[in-house]
Write a protein that binds this DNA or RNA. Structure first.
Lengths: 206, 206, 206, 206
DNA sequence: AATGAATGAGAATTCATTCAT
DNA sequence: AATGAATGAATTCTCATTCAT
């Protein structure tokens, strides 16, 4: 990580201030409220000024997400690249991310789960919640039967849902070409299983 | 699951056709393109007609997400509630979901990862991709050092990212009150670790 | 007034029922709510049926206003054409109208003062109310100084406002041609004055 | 009444111009034609511009009626509050209002008698006209018999109609609660009678 | 460089009217 | 004759973007 030794130029400062204003707006009301006028108001400048620094709303958005991303990414990266046992590092990275997100919940929510449209998203989040519920039932059962480790079923279920959904996002994206869908599906399932499975599965469970 | 034995009334058929048109639109261009005019065009009707069956765009959206959700949810539920070892059932549920998603990729993408705005989302997905990359590096290392099972690093990383992000969605949502952020973060991290950790961690890894 | 001695044909009955339904709708929610669908619902028929009897919403409206008008007009006419002192007849006619209106207030309001648009009309009625207030002040003063009869200022003011506004409606209507605006204005003013003036104006008032 | 000594700001001027455009539209075609697009066209601006100054069509309407109202109200008020005999002042106020209305007939018509819908109002105005006719007959008779002053029957009739209709508007409005409908009706009738009654009713008329 | 007023394409929604059954 | 689903023109309002000052 390099930091410029030069003081930021007036122009760089402007860009930052505008970005900070945008972040404020999103932190308060989500991406829904991210309108150029609102950002201008929050920055104490005029709309036109934003366009001098970010030629498009799209670029402002990208810069905003990019900035927040970069910070969080950096935290994760530095932990990942540290010394120590990989397991501990992974644990640390995830838990650092989670703690930080929980500290600035509104912004984190916007970054992670912000709705397309209220209508769509209410239904969409609800869907994931229900899939989670279904899995939580299964997981609770598995825990009871000692097939799974003593995990908290709801939380574990959310992890499973997130795991396979995210694992799909890349492959689902229009550009991706895949050779073997079935292999992929099986692999994803295997990884998800590991979230809960007992290290030493009992006879009964096999 | 009950299926009506009566043939669908004309009105029910219409509703379905309109929903099918909406699904088509979303399958082609995502929720971005879901405009009443576009749906009407896809259904070969007039805009006003849609409003006879869905009094609001919001309700049409909800119905669409609801329908797709219901189908997928049902698949997962029936597997979860079947007989057999919990582990196998979990594996089956996830892999069935994944296979189905991979079959109708565009729609699945819309349901799972559709952008708020192209601008926001490009950046947002990119962010998750990069976090994934960072973790993939760590995971590859862990695999090499036999601290982790021989997982495919990129895929496992995606699962980890998805797992903790999803596990955070509920807790991040504005309404949620939390007692202990640190405990939650640690629990999430523990579950994520399980995705990759070797059942019998070597000395070296500790 | 003739009443047909023949029983009404089915078709005539239909027309009446539809009109009754329309009146019901207006009595409940004013002309704002007079939509073809609402009338059909109130009549327990289909929209298309209304169009068999009233080829246009405009004609249905006209028929409705016409019917209500006709009844009230008849009451007034019969009193006007009765025997007795003109003064008493006028008194009776007006007071009969007023009493009837007060009995079916919602419908009467719709007939007399229904808004164009909430926005316009709130402002418009408010205007007339304020003019009334200004005049009420003057009238109260006149009453106190015995220049006017002991009328109730607010009510008298409303009468004056209504009197000149109505007297202007005809002349204002686009088709009307006028010779002498000033003469007309003076005449209207004279009539309005009569509403309150003492029969025998005191010296002071002249 | 204060007039600002400062020249109007650009923004104030804009607001005025837009209002003037709206007034023009109404003066030409009544409130029926008052659509945002039409106003924009009349003002030589884009629709969006109107929304910068009047956040809602309703507010534009209110402002328009308010502006016209205010001017006329002021004329009436200043006359009402002047010195002189109350009778003369009332006469002056009414006649000033009438003269002004007759000068800008289209706008005055829109302010005073504009239709809800052409359909409704044609019929509604027609109704009032007919009631006027009926009363005019009675008034003519009363004049002929010297029971009434030598008023112009049609004009006097219009005044009477306006007087009682207006006097009813307040009491009819949904919010109003009334103690004694009959007393109100009688009072209104009494005031209406005064419009025409001879100061010294002949025996015959009693 | 900054301003912020102006722009206008778009999108949702309403409702009188039509017409096939 | 009756039905009521379908139609689509019309209208309000939003907000990213431009540009004269």
């Amino acid at each position: 990580m390099f930091m410029s030794l030069m003081p930021p130029s007036r122009s760089e400062r402007r860009r930052r201030d505008l970005l900070a204003a945008a972040r404020q707006v999103v932190s308060d009301g989500g991406f829904r409220d991210l309108q150029m006028l609102a950002v201008a108001a929050a920055a104490g400048t005029a709309v036109g000024t934003i366009y001098r620094y970010y030629p498009t709303k799209a670029e402002l958005c990208a810069a905003l997400v990019g900035e927040v991303s970069a910070r969080e990414l950096e935290v994760i990266r530095s932990i990942c690249e540290a010394d120590g046992a990989p397991g501990q590092r992974l644990r640390d990275a995830v838990s650092a991310f989670a703690r930080r997100a929980l500290h600035n919940r509104r912004l984190a929510y916007a970054m992670i789960a912000e709705p397309v449209e209220a209508a769509v998203d209410d239904a969409r989040l609800e869907w994931r919640r229900r899939i989670g519920e279904a899995l939580a039932g299964l997981i609770a059962e598995g825990v009871a039967r000692d097939a799974f480790r003593p995990v908290e079923p709801k939380l574990a279920a959310a992890c499973v849902v997130g795991a396979f959904m995210e694992a799909l996002v890349g492959p689902l994206s229009p550009a991706t070409l895949l050779d073997d869908d079935d292999k992929l599906a099986a692999d994803i399932a295997g990884l998800c299983l590991a979230i809960v499975e007992a290290p030493d599965p009992t006879e009964e469970d096999r």
